[in-house]
Amino acid sequence: MLEPTPLSGVQIITPRVFSDNRGSFCETYNQDTLASFGIDTAFVQDNQSWSRDAGTIRGLHFQAPPAAQAKLVRVLVGEIWDVAVDIRAGSPTYGQWTGVTLSAANSRQLLIPAGFLHGFVTRVPDCLVAYKCSNVYAPGCEGAVRFDDPDLAIDWGIPAAGAVLSDKDAAAGSFAELQTPFTYEASA
């Protein structure tokens, strides 16, 4: 099932889950199924992160062209609040964010196209998150914005002072300083 969000291109994908007395099964990725929804993103890299503590924030990150990345995010263990922020210059939703709960229990996934910041907060300890990327990691193309930027006013569901951050995320710049490398292209 495909569910749109308020941000054009950001989609919630909920696969069909088959359950019986043994447990459950679902396809977490099927190129043909996504193509039937009009999603033709080719994924070339799989990433996985483990976060020990609840309240761990990873983000807000992006990768600039020529190594821009779309991501397909899902949770293997635990629960997160997953956030995308539109940073496409000229977009009617520039600077707006959307969030969705992803968990091992609900099997939901979030598709985040290139042109968006991405980040998440863990809601429980020991979260294992997996995501597909449409381009390989390119350190020279990475960028970040502070998770608690007042211009974005993202509701992470935790006090900012209690967030567990990497040194790199703690040093991220402000949204106002962002020189976005992305331009909005209206659909025909």
Rank of each mutant, 00 (worst) to 15 (best):
Met1His: 14
Met1Lys: 12
Glu3Gly: 04
Glu3Cys: 10
Pro4Ile: 05
Thr5Asp: 03
Thr5Val: 01
Thr5Trp: 01
Pro6Cys: 07
Leu7Asn: 01
Ser8Met: 07
Gly9Asn: 02
Gly9Tyr: 02
Gln11Trp: 15
Ile12Leu: 14
Ile13Asn: 03
Thr14Cys: 09
Thr14Asp: 09
Pro15Val: 04
Pro15Gln: 07
Val17Thr: 15
Ser19Thr: 14
Asn21Cys: 08
Arg22His: 08
Arg22Pro: 04
Arg22Val: 06
Ser24Tyr: 10
Asn30Cys: 14
Gln31Glu: 15
Gln31Lys: 14
Leu34Trp: 10
Ala35Ser: 14
Asp40Thr: 13
Thr41Met: 08
Thr41Ile: 15
Val44Lys: 08
Asn47Cys: 13
Ser49Asp: 13
Ser49Val: 12
Trp50Ile: 14
Ser51Ala: 10
Ser51His: 07
Ser51Glu: 07
Arg52Lys: 15
Arg52Tyr: 13
Asp53Arg: 15
Ala54Arg: 14
Gly55His: 02
Gly55Gln: 01
Gly59Asp: 05
His61Pro: 04
His61Met: 03
Phe62Asn: 00
Gln63Lys: 04
Ala64Pro: 04
Ala64Leu: 03
Ala64Ser: 15
Ala67Thr: 08
Gln69Gly: 12
Ala70Cys: 14
Ala70Asn: 11
Ala70Gly: 15
Leu72Lys: 03
Val75Ile: 12
Val75Arg: 01
Val75Trp: 00
Val77Met: 10
Val77Ile: 11
Gly78Asn: 02
Glu79Met: 11
Glu79Leu: 05
Ile80His: 01
Val83Thr: 01
Val83Tyr: 00
Val83Asn: 00
Val83Glu: 00
Ala84Cys: 05
Val85Trp: 02
Asp86Ile: 01
Arg88Tyr: 05
Ala89Lys: 13
Gly90Phe: 03
Ser91Pro: 01
Ser91Cys: 02
Pro92Phe: 02
Thr93Ala: 00
Gly95Asn: 04
Gly95Ala: 03
Gly99Asp: 04
Thr101His: 09
Thr101Met: 10
Thr101Asp: 10
Ala105His: 08
Asn106Trp: 05
Gln109Val: 11
Leu111Lys: 08
Leu111Met: 12
Ile112Trp: 07
Ile112Asp: 06
Phe116Gln: 12
Leu117Arg: 11
Gly119Gln: 06
Gly119Ile: 06
Val121Gln: 07
Arg123Pro: 02
Arg123Val: 05
Asp126Gln: 13
Leu128Cys: 12
Ala130Trp: 03
Cys133Glu: 07
Cys133Ile: 05
Asn135Gln: 13
Tyr137Met: 08
Ala138Ile: 03
Gly140Pro: 00
Glu142Asn: 07
Glu142His: 06
Gly143Phe: 10
Ala144Ser: 14
Ala144Arg: 10
Phe147Gly: 01
Asp149Ser: 03
Pro150Thr: 01
Leu152Ile: 05
Leu152Tyr: 01
Ala153Glu: 02
Ala153Ser: 12
Ile154Ser: 00
Ile158Tyr: 13
Ala163Tyr: 06
Ala163Thr: 10
Val164Thr: 13
Ser166Phe: 09
Ser166Tyr: 11
Asp167Gln: 14
Ala170Trp: 06
Gly173Met: 13
Phe182Ile: 01
Phe182Ala: 00
Phe182Pro: 00
Tyr184Leu: 04
Ala186Glu: 15
